[in-house]
């Protein structure tokens, strides 16, 4: 969980400084987000259990989008996440963000 709080902190900073929140979620498509989420839930347990990889169910959509943009630009550093984010465009990130925000977080 500690890692996730760090992520929250950075994401909040990014949210405030880099982009307006409504822009982050432009073009969001819930159905497309559900399809794209298949790549995420191989690692991020859909049951909301953190055994070494953070829970992303129920994460605030703007925070989610900020984090993914930070991985995309290299402002946050993790080889798997940077690879995942590198091929997601803004609409795809927004779609994932609204999908996971709607998932019940059970942690």
């Amino acid at each position: 969980m500690r890692n996730l709080w760090t992520v929250f902190f950075f994401a909040t900073i990014l949210c405030l400084s880099h982009a307006r929140a409504d822009n982050l979620l432009d073009g969001a498509d819930l159905g497309y987000g559900e399809y794209l989420s298949g790549e995420c839930v191989t690692c991020h347990s859909k049951d909301g259990v953190d055994k070494g990889i953070p829970v992303i169910n129920g994460l605030d959509a703007e925070v989610f989008a900020s984090i993914m943009h930070a991985y995309k630009t290299g402002d946050m550093d993790h080889p798997v996440m940077m690879m995942v984010a590198s091929r997601l465009d803004a609409e795809q990130i927004a779609s994932l963000a609204v999908y996971f925000a709607a998932m019940p977080g059970t942690n």
């Binding site: 191989t42 991020h44 347990s45 859909k46 953190d50 055994k51 070494g52 990889i53």
Partner: peptide, 10 residues
């Protein structure tokens, strides 16, 4: 370890 949990849940 987290991945194992994730993929087997999936």
């Amino acid at each position: 370890i987290g991945w194992y949990e994730g993929i087997t849940t999936d």
